[in-house]
């Protein structure tokens, strides 16, 4: 039967980006239909070049939508996000394995 317990989220970041979006919605930063319509548009665009399988590509589209969405609402600037992403990368690369990773 197909009801075997699939993991809800297959990657930790899937869960994180999902929770982040739900949390922002619950905090009143946007309503869900608005989000769904933007997300639907991204899925449609990404689905033009290849058939999406609903796994990693689904959450990739989710993240892409959220980044654009938050930028359009002046909640998180795209350049700031890119810089912060690189700061986290540097932090991971300069932290010894096993130690907690923190930003400088």
């Amino acid at each position: 039967m197909t009801d075997a317990p699939d993991p809800v989220f297959t990657e930790p970041w899937h869960a994180q980006v999902f929770a982040l979006t739900v949390h922002l919605n619950e905090a009143g930063h946007f309503d869900w239909p608005e989000w769904a319509s933007c997300f639907g548009a991204t899925l449609k665009k990404n689905g033009l070049s290849k058939e999406l399988d609903g796994g990693d590509d689904y959450f990739t589209a989710w993240l892409e939508t959220l980044e654009q969405f938050l930028a359009s609402k002046d909640l998180a600037d795209l350049r700031d996000v890119a810089e912060m992403r690189n700061a986290w990368e540097r932090a991971y690369l300069s932290t010894p394995h096993g130690a907690p990773v923190t930003l400088e």
Partner: peptide, 25 residues
């Protein structure tokens, strides 16, 4: 060094950090 998470994971972390610092989440 620590295992580098995949690119999307870093981007999600970046959003989280920014929004937390702004007090939005």
């Amino acid at each position: 060094h620590s295992l580098l998470p995949p690119d999307p994971a870093l981007r999600v972390k970046a959003l989280e950090t920014i929004l937390t610092r702004k007090g939005l989440i």
